[in-house]
């Protein structure tokens, strides 16, 4: 039994039962399939995380985001600028204790290059209710290509713990026709 030494001293030479062999084969092939699925999705799927990342000083990223916001601001909402970039533009959103800045207004069906980075601690970009979640680090500029497929008002909840104000950190993305 499992609590005593194997009864047969040469246990590694025993034949494996058929049922076990069948199950091991199925489980192994299923593993190969699941692995291939991830690779295939990179080639054919439409939801993959970008690998485009640059090192950047937080102050530098802040400057770029401010320049972007200044260029594209169309109105204010809750005291925060709303930037409406043209389709295909480089779009910036920075995270800091405890806000996502600025608010964005995007067009449905258009593709944007969204630049994300943090000014201080790690934050979690959690786009709701779409449910796209991306980790945001200070010092790294992550460029994600995004194509909204729905219109409406979407929120960016912070889902990486970032101190006592964590649960007040909400940003906004509007998608219009």
């Amino acid at each position: 039994m499992a609590l005593t030494s194997p009864e047969s001293k040469i246990w590694w030479n025993e034949r494996i039962g058929r049922a076990e062999l069948v199950w091991i084969t199925i489980a192994f092939l299923w593993g190969v399939f699941m692995f291939s699925m991830m690779v295939w999705w990179h080639l054919e799927g439409n939801q993959n995380l970008s690998n485009e990342v640059y090192r950047i000083a937080p102050t530098k990223f802040e400057e770029k985001t401010e320049a972007f916001t200044e260029k594209y601001t169309v109105r204010e909402e809750a005291g925060m600028p709303v930037a409406k970039p043209e389709p295909g533009a480089e779009v910036y959103m920075l995270s800091r204790l405890w806000e996502w800045w600025p608010i964005l207004e995007l067009k449905k069906g258009q593709t944007y290059r969204l630049h994300l980075s943090s000014m201080d601690w790690q934050h979690g970009f959690s786009l709701q209710p779409v449910n796209i979640n991306i980790q945001v680090h200070p010092g790294l500029e992550h460029v994600v290509t995004l194509t909204p497929t729905q219109t409406g008002e979407f929120s960016v909840v912070c889902n990486e713990f970032c101190g006592v104000g964590h649960h007040t950190m909400v940003g906004r993305i509007h998608v219009v026709e």
Binding site: I103, Q128, P129, N159, H166, H167, T168, V170
Partner: peptide
């Protein structure tokens, strides 16, 4: 349904911008 882990208040009552799960 998208609810964040390690989060004290999913009603976002103290937040400037709000969101309803």
């Amino acid at each position: 349904l998208g609810v964040s882990r390690r989060h004290w208040d999913i009603t976002f009552s103290d937040a400037t911008l709000s969101f309803d799960y």
